[in-house]
């Protein structure tokens, strides 16, 4: 969970209290490795693959996915990052933070774009990301890789690659860090 989600989740000014560790560092490493293999299997190789991490939580996931793909395929994999704050339908809810940058390659036409994010929840971030990516060009296809799918979708969006399916209550929070994945709640 990125800092801005933490700041913006009610009760405001609360702290995240973890109740259970649902993935360890090793679990995450193995999940990334498996997803990398699935990406290659689905696309019959790694040709034209472009991994795009969503600011801010997805950037680390994207980095790790790229590293795993490069190890398996022995070639360089293209990557970028995207801040969808300005494309969201709930704008005003989230502050645009100066440090969250967008950096995509100049040409994304014909690429297979794999969006990487930490947690898939309502699907609204992904809708915004689809919108933003289509402003940059016309990829051959867009796929979605997430570390955790916690359910509660509000839009017809599904992930192609999932680290872990995690049933949650709607008021719970999922915190993805380098140490692992925690399930918990915000407390004042």
């Amino acid at each position: 969970m990125a800092d801005r989600e933490r700041r913006m989740t009610p009760p405001f000014g609360g702290v995240f209290v973890a109740s259970a560790r649902v993935m360890t560092r090793d679990d995450m490493r193995r999940a990334i490795r498996r997803m990398a293999h699935e990406v290659i299997e689905r696309n019959q190789g790694s040709e034209d693959i472009l991994i795009v991490g969503l600011q801010t939580g997805g950037v680390k996931v994207a980095e790790n996915l790229v590293k795993a793909l490069e190890e398996i395929e022995g070639r360089e994999i293209e990557s970028g990052c995207l801040d969808v704050a300005l494309h969201r339908d709930d704008i005003g809810l989230r502050p645009v933070v100066p440090e969250a940058a967008t950096n995509l390659p100049d040409l994304i036409d014909g690429k297979i774009v794999v969006i990487a994010d930490d947690v898939l929840f309502t699907g609204r971030t992904i809708r915004a990301a689809l919108d933003a990516i289509c402003h940059f060009g016309r990829p051959r296809s867009i796929q979605l890789a997430v570390m955790v799918d916690r359910g509660h979708r509000e839009l017809p969006i599904r992930p192609d690659y999932v680290g872990k399916n995690l049933p949650t209550r709607i008021d719970e929070l999922v915190d993805v860090t380098e140490e692992g994945v925690d399930l918990g709640v915000m407390r004042k």
Binding site: E5, D90, G92, L93, P95, R124, L173
Partner: peptide
């Protein structure tokens, strides 16, 4: 413009989704 118009409802809203 974004500073003036884009972030007005931040404190009013009580629902934020990831």
């Amino acid at each position: 413009l974004f500073m003036l118009l884009g972030q007005h409802e931040t404190s009013k809203q009580d629902e934020v989704q990831e």
